[in-house]
Nucleic acid binder design. Sequence first.
DNA 1: TGCCTGATTGCCT
DNA 2: GGCAATCAGGCAA
Length: 179
Amino acid sequence: MEAARALLGKIVAHTDAHGTTAGRIVETEAYLGAGDLAAHSARGETPRTKVIFGPPGHAYVYLIYGMYDCLNIVVEPEGVAGCVLVRALEPTDGIDEMKRRRGIEKLEELANGPGKLTRAMGITLRHSGADLTRGPITVHPPEREAEFAIAVSRRIGITKSADLPLRFYMKGNRFVSRG
DNA sequence: TGCCTGATTGCCT
DNA sequence: GGCAATCAGGCAA
């Protein structure tokens, strides 16, 4: 939960054959282990959720509704389930490549949703379990810390434990998915 | 093996 | 504002 707040403002970068795409995290949601029915890890460790129980700093990517990939960052120590869903990014690098992948020109719609940002950056299921300190996907602090206000709300798009205030976003930022 | 659910998006009315 | 698209994983049989 603190980690979800701390990730706001961090830079996510992905490098592949098409170049590097990167963006600043402007919206996150925390998913806990025990007691959080909305979390994929709620039913215990399985082949898919294994990475959530692994060491922090790794990517957990899953497919939702058969068409969209969602990027999570594992934050709890090994053996404890806990991850943060990255819901929206403000594009900073590789913007032309993001526009090409998304097929649109509007900057604020390139990555203002969990399915959109993975598509814009070329992140798929294959990246699940990747070490975010080594790449090709990395997460690091911005070169210049920007001032921003953090707002909290209930989580979006889920049916279980939906009332918990575990969504964090930059107040007033136009790249946030809703709000 | 087969059914069903889902942390979404975008197209259609 | 409503709803279809589309598939991996979890669970029952």
